[in-house]
């Protein structure tokens, strides 16, 4: 099992997951769709109570080494790639000769065994151009990905490794 170091914002016994508290407050304000003092108070209360009650399910806190890189990864790389992915997939779906597709499985050797990074990598792969992650082998060494139209397997593996895995490894510093 990988060991997590402490997150940059310190948490204690009463506030075990500060980032989660912040996210819960924001989600509560989105859900009620108004920003008033009462709802802010209620959201803060829920944001403190929910991590406290569910503390046993989240024993470790992930360490975000580079928050700025995280924002850049999700708001530039990720959003662009989702849009590109959709246009690519729609073009493949609507092409006249559907039998020209070359669907196949590709194997991606993983450089990290951190469950958090593997989860995020698998999710990002599923949402980006022409690939859906299908399975992680038990030793966490290989990710099996199904590609919709793969011309060059080595190139596809190389793209995923440099474009997604390398930034994620840097962000979570492992």
């Amino acid at each position: 099992m990988p060991t997590y170091r402490k997150s940059p914002i310190p948490g204690n016994r009463w506030l075990p997951h500060p980032l989660m508290t912040l996210v819960l407050v924001i989600i509560w304000l989105f859900l009620v769709n108004t920003i008033t003092f009462g709802h802010l108070l209620l959201g803060t209360l829920l944001g403190i109570a929910i991590p406290w009650f569910t503390n046993r399910f989240w024993p470790e806190r992930p360490k975000i080494a580079k928050p700025f890189l995280l924002f850049r990864f999700f708001f530039i790389t990720f959003v662009t790639d989702v849009i590109v992915a959709n246009i690519t997939v729609v073009r493949l779906f609507l092409q006249p000769d559907i039998s020209r597709l070359r669907p196949r499985f590709i194997e991606i050797p993983l450089d990290t065994q951190d469950p958090m990074v593997i989860t995020i990598l698998a999710s990002v792969i599923s949402l980006t151009p022409g690939t859906v992650s299908a399975e992680v082998t038990e030793d966490r060494q290989t990710l099996i990905v199904h590609g919709l139209d793969v011309a060059d397997e080595a190139l596809a593996v190389q793209t995923i490794k440099t474009r997604y895995e390398a930034p994620l490894k840097e962000i979570f510093s492992c």
Binding site: N86, F93, P103, L127, A134
Partner: peptide, 13 residues
């Protein structure tokens, strides 16, 4: 497996 690509991408966007 090819059909799986539909709902994950196109429908989410």
């Amino acid at each position: 497996f090819s059909r799986l690509h539909g709902p994950t991408k196109s429908t989410t966007l």
